[in-house]
Design a protein around this nucleic acid. Structure first.
Lengths: 245, 245
DNA sequence: CGCGATTTGTGCACGTCTTCACAAGCGCCT
DNA sequence: AGGCGCTTGTGAAGACGTGCACAAATCGCG
């Protein structure tokens, strides 16, 4: 026994998978593992130890093992993890076996950059629509896509079966856009506008605020400065940290 | 007694403040509170209750009170918080009383957008330099700044007293850029490149990876889909969450 | 076949974060 | 002055996340 069976082994499209419900902290790290694994695969590695992979992903190796153990038992003691198999499993759990369609609303400064960002396409997403409320922006072509008016969202959502909405509008417009996205059935939103969105239960919102990241760094700068000024002497003790969950 | 004295009341530029060392989770939320407070101030509010502010910031009110209590006691029981005073305090703690100079390295797609993003200027930061390694990009003017070659970093760092480095290069170049930033004394780095940076102790790195955010949303989409397919019936239970600590 | 080297998977203890619930404090009204 | 309603600040409990340390499992070699 002990072939790798798993509740949701990929390939079985019909069966309902019963995804293990992972800790949020683990979910937030899986994409990082995935990226590291792709790098290893490109480098020709067939297996990798938890030590090796954790170094490549910038985390503690015990944490990595515990994270992976939540997915099932895909390692071999004494050997390590099969890179290809692990990629397959993580992509399955993250729901990346189907390429999800993304609608990007707001084609200003940031929207332009996002529309042209190839990291989306290369990691399982397809920007299916660019929308803006400003008529003077409608019709513009960015990276092979034509900007359409946000009022066309209902038609586009059905046609392209939009799974995720990205809001890159000014803060004042964000709530209204979110409402429109929710109205057409979008249940996942990535919000770049610096404001709090209120959405019904069942809708996931993640927020990215670039200025907030700088302000957090500013705090640590401030603290480091106040420490070096103190008798203690040497600076000290900060280490790398990433955006957590 | 009980005038609001505080170890590091703003205005006292000379004295060493002895910043309270706040929990990381609290630090990550302070900028959000600050944004909400500015909105309230613009709206003419002079005071706000923890209930009101927490709603505006999208958090639990008890959490908000505990966060603020770490800064000192700046509320009045039965009344609430003085908006202006609290803004002053949070800005002081975050080190925003001095406008920090930011160097942005990598003026590609994303770099362009960041260079033009006015949220930085409006929230206490000054983009002091745009750098790129590609000679064909050097000389270009973006938003009033000229792109200079990354080799000029040492001179610029001194001249502009750069406090924070932002890396918006391809992943392959990021580590090298980070090394250069560290070499000229930068101790805070915001990294948009999808890779792990290794930096000496004492240097803070925060990472923002746009594709990772989408992948996390994708997981929740996948899970929601697998739940609705199960006997249980109704979708359910997801609520808004933000990028955590 | 057995043994040792290696690496996974996990029990456990610890620390951090969250949330509830309430005493303490403040202002207003009578 | 006294009492009442409101809101802060915080103790305590529970949930969550982390990291150590080790048993269990596997491979390769003699």
């Amino acid at each position: 026994m002990s072939q790798h069976r798993h509740p949701g082994a990929p390939g079985r499209a019909g069966a309902v998978p019963a995804l293990p419900d992972l800790p949020e902290a683990t979910v937030a790290r899986l994409p990082e593992y995935l990226r590291a694994l792709h790098n290893l695969a490109d480098g020709g590695h067939e297996t990798v130890s938890s030590e090796g992979l954790s170094a490549a992903a910038g985390v503690n190796s015990a944490k990595l093992r515990k994270d992976l153990s939540h997915l099932g038992s895909y390692g071999t003691r004494g050997v390590g993890y099969d890179v290809a198999l692990l990629i397959e499993q993580i992509e399955y759990v993250l729901g990346l076996t189907q390429r999800r369609a993304v609608a990007l609303v707001g084609v200003g400064n940031l929207g332009h950059a996002l529309a042209g960002y190839d990291g989306f396409a290369s990691r399982g997403f397809r920007i299916a629509a660019l929308l803006d409320a400003d008529p003077s922006r409608v019709g513009e072509e960015i990276n092979g896509l034509i900007v359409r008016h946000v009022d066309e969202l209902p038609a586009i959502a059905v046609q392209e079966s939009i799974a995720i909405g990205v809001i890159a509008t000014p803060a004042a417009a964000a709530q209204s856009v979110a409402d429109q996205l929710v109205a057409v059935g979008v249940t996942s939103i990535l919000n770049f506008a610096p404001c709090v969105l209120s959405v019904p239960e069942g809708v996931d919102v993640r927020k990215v605020d670039l200025a907030i990241e700088l302000q957090i760094l500013s705090f640590h700068e401030h603290r480091k400065a106040s420490l070096t000024a103190l008798p203690g002497g040497l600076a000290a003790t900060e280490t790398q940290e990433a955006i957590g969950t």
